[in-house]
Amino acid sequence: MSNTVPTPAKGRLGQMRQAYTITKRSDRKIGLILLLTFLVVGGAFGALATWCSATVSLASSPRSCSLC
């Protein structure tokens, strides 16, 4: 493990890259954790968007059910 001080990051993406690099030194599973977090949150938003679009399309179609 190196104790060298990283060079100052340039811009927001540079700061994020530097934070990830520093965190990766102490937590080797950070990449997997970030990937799983991204997939779970993306899946939840995708399911919500699908459900909302299906609900809106059913509600807006005339005589979409036999009870109406």
Results as ranks from 00 to 15, higher is better:
21 T>E: 15
32 L>S: 08
11 G>H: 05
36 L>Q: 04
2 S>G: 05
39 L>H: 09
57 S>Y: 07
45 F>A: 07
68 C>W: 07
22 I>F: 01
11 G>A: 03
28 R>E: 13
53 S>T: 09
26 S>N: 12
2 S>T: 14
15 Q>G: 11
36 L>A: 13
17 R>W: 03
4 T>I: 05
40 V>G: 00
42 G>S: 15
68 C>P: 01
53 S>L: 06
13 L>C: 02
16 M>W: 09
3 N>G: 14
16 M>K: 08
17 R>S: 08
38 F>T: 14
19 A>M: 13
28 R>T: 08
61 S>G: 05
50 T>G: 02
6 P>Y: 03
36 L>D: 04
11 G>Q: 04
53 S>Y: 04
28 R>G: 10
20 Y>V: 11
30 I>K: 02
68 C>L: 07
59 A>H: 10
61 S>M: 05
50 T>A: 10
58 L>E: 08
49 A>F: 15
32 L>K: 11
51 W>G: 12
15 Q>F: 03
15 Q>S: 12
14 G>D: 08
11 G>D: 08
13 L>G: 09
58 L>Q: 07
10 K>W: 01
59 A>D: 08
25 R>V: 15
13 L>D: 07
18 Q>P: 02
63 R>E: 12
50 T>V: 13
42 G>P: 01
56 V>E: 07
25 R>P: 00
20 Y>P: 10
68 C>N: 03
2 S>A: 11
22 I>T: 15
15 Q>L: 15
38 F>S: 08
30 I>L: 12
54 A>I: 10
59 A>Y: 11
58 L>Y: 10
51 W>I: 05
3 N>C: 06
33 I>F: 12
51 W>E: 12
58 L>T: 01
65 C>L: 04
66 S>Q: 07
50 T>H: 04
61 S>I: 06
5 V>G: 01
66 S>I: 00
46 G>N: 12
62 P>Y: 03
61 S>E: 09
68 C>E: 10
17 R>A: 14
61 S>W: 03
4 T>M: 07
22 I>Q: 14
1 M>D: 15
33 I>H: 06
20 Y>H: 14
41 V>H: 02
6 P>L: 05
57 S>A: 13
18 Q>L: 15
48 L>Q: 02
44 A>T: 13
25 R>E: 15
39 L>G: 06
55 T>D: 12
46 G>P: 01
46 G>M: 00
52 C>A: 13
64 S>G: 14
42 G>V: 05
56 V>I: 15
26 S>P: 00
53 S>E: 06
10 K>Q: 07
13 L>V: 11
57 S>F: 11
66 S>Y: 10
65 C>G: 11
55 T>C: 01
4 T>C: 09
22 I>E: 11
59 A>C: 03
2 S>C: 07
36 L>H: 09
14 G>F: 05
